[in-house]
Design a protein around this nucleic acid. Structure first.
Length: 512
DNA sequence: TTCCGACAGTGGGGTCGCAAT
DNA sequence: ATTGCGACCCCACTATCGGAA
């Protein structure tokens, strides 16, 4: 198959808003793909590379050679070239990657170059990623989409499923099942406003503490333990203390879902930045384990010994978890059997407040009858976190991309200093409706003092109410603090910049 | 006909590893 | 030694399509 075929279909997929049309186009291409090239084709159509990230970012993609006049590249050529780029390391790696990339780009037509830039940069922007590629695969093979999706979740990748499915038909799907040693995408949670909102939406449920750490999926098979992150990156060798704990559990085989977090001597969580730093660090694991030890806390059990628990309701999975994992290694929780009962609701609220007093992030409320929906952000898990707000001043705004092209999008936010100047605390582009984007573009341009084509600086007069999750230390911003997960709630036209919140107020929210 | 679940898009800050300077 | 880039950790929110109610 030619790369030009992929580039053409990708452009057509991007051009339509209809999802059924998108899957139809994807299916059409997969139908004519040979089984041996299908794994690469389906991965490309999902906007990813079979090799994962290969060390090419915006800087290497900036200038491409002149495009070829006629298409000649095959999908196999591209896969080989990307494989060669992925294999580059050591001294001179950057120049060597650039050289290989230029050779590839030089052999591509203008439309193929567009496709490759999107694919290699991780921003294909065709309005279809994994989910629609899997839909297209199902349509191409004449298999039920739900069965294909399940096979992909349990088999780890759309590529492996595509190969088997196109070679052997829908019967091949039953071979993909949960195996100890092969990670599955973790189940995710939606957001609820508060505990009462969550109880109203769920019925009988468990309220569990939400720890601000790193999600881990732990597989134990006898003495062998392996650990994966949320995105299924393997981090086994960075967490030897977790592997030790897993080996001591009174089971032979297990797949556990949980969180690792750095705690201080009294059991309170250390700042997220410390947990993330420890988990991210590859060097000197033994030393790091002494300085920043991590504690595992488990909340789900996906398999034990030879039993696959995914389809069981949470109640039954938790009963198995309680058998396999001692209480101190489990997340604290409160079961609410009848959310209509006023006393039970009050107890749930009090539990959540106690969790916050212990310094944790919030709670996750989970329906007791829900199975483990791997890879889904379903409505049966609802997270509840407190929201803080500040009134800040817009100092500048950046021109948006994609569907925000032509609109001022990313806001630079400032807090007031005692001398009347403003200190930048961070940026946000979140929470904006289309109406708000238009409104702020118009009003900020009226306040503009400069525009370099990327950032529009404005007179600091517009006040905006910002929601955020917490204040953390920063090496980037002048006052050494920044907001975590800032998002726009509304503009405060009733407030002047001189009434905005101060740097001192924000710094006062730093932990400890 | 309306509602709502799932998906994609739009990017944010921090930290680490590695190569280049 | 410092700097820049790339990768990956955490994440919120809106718009839209299309099936469910």
């Amino acid at each position: 198959m030619l790369l030009a075929d992929l580039a053409r279909v990708s452009a057509a997929v991007a051009a339509t808003g209809s999802r059924s049309e998108k899957t139809g186009l994807l299916a059409g291409l997969l139908r004519v793909a040979a089984p041996e090239e299908a794994p690469v084709v389906v991965t490309y159509l999902a906007g990813r590379l079979p090799q994962g990230r290969v060390g090419i970012g915006w800087s290497l993609l900036r200038d491409a050679p002149a495009p070829a006049a006629a298409p000649s590249l095959t999908v196999r050529d591209v896969d080989r070239a990307v494989g060669a780029i992925a294999a580059v390391s050591g001294k001179g790696a950057r120049a060597e990657r650039q050289r290989l990339l230029s050779a590839l780009m030089g052999a591509a037509t203008a439309e193929e170059q567009r496709f490759l830039r999107g694919l290699l940069g991780g921003e294909l922007r065709q309005g279809a990623l994994d989910a629609l590629a899997v839909e297209g695969l199902a349509a191409a093979a004449g298999a039920p989409p739900e069965d294909v999706r399940r096979a992909v979740m349990l088999g780890g990748s759309a590529a492996a499923v595509a190969r088997e499915l196109l070679a052997h038909g829908p019967e091949a799907l039953s071979a993909f099942r949960l195996e100890v040693g092969r990670p599955v995408l973790p189940m995710l949670a939606q957001t609820a406003k508060d505990v009462d909102d969550a109880l109203d939406r769920l019925g009988p449920c468990a309220v569990e503490e939400k720890l601000d750490g790193i999600r881990v999926q732990v597989h134990r098979d006898g003495e062998r333990v392996r650990i994966w992150t949320r995105a299924l990156e393997e981090i086994t060798d960075r967490l030897p203390e977790l592997a030790r704990v897993a080996r001591e559990l009174p089971v032979e085989r297990a797949v556990l879902d949980g969180e690792v977090i750095a705690l201080d001597g009294t059991g309170r969580p250390r700042p997220f930045q410390e947990t993330a730093g420890r988990v991210g660090s590859r060097l000197d694991v033994a030393g790091a384990a002494v300085s920043v030890p991590l504690s595992p806390v488990f909340f789900d059990l996906l398999a034990v010994d030879d039993h696959d628990l995914l389809a069981l309701p949470l109640t039954e999975r938790h009963a198995e978890l309680a058998r396999a994992v001692p209480e101190p290694l489990r997340v604290r929780r409160l079961v609410v059997a009848d959310p209509a009962d006023a006393a039970a609701r009050a107890a749930a609220r009090e539990f959540a407040e106690a969790v916050l007093r212990h310094g944790h992030e919030g709670v996750v409320v989970k329906a007791l009858d829900a199975p483990y929906n791997a890879g889904r952000r379903g409505a049966s898990w609802l997270k509840v976190k407190p929201v803080h707000t500040l009134d800040l001043v817009v100092l500048a705004a950046e021109w948006g991309h994609g569907r925000r092209t032509g609109k001022l999008s990313n806001l630079h936010l400032g807090a007031r200093r005692p001398d009347g100047s403003f200190a930048m605390l961070g940026k946000t582009f979140k929470g904006l409706t289309d109406a708000l984007l238009s409104w702020q573009t118009e009003h900020l341009l009226a306040l503009s003092v400069s525009d370099d084509g990327f950032v529009v600086r404005v007179r600091p007069e517009l006040v905006v109410e910002i929601a955020y999750d917490g204040v953390q230390r920063s090496s980037r911003y002048p006052e050494g603090v920044t907001l975590r997960f800032a998002r726009v709630l509304r503009y405060r036209e009733d407030k002047r910049a001189s009434e905005a919140d101060t740097v001192a107020t924000v710094r006062g929210f730093l932990p400890r």
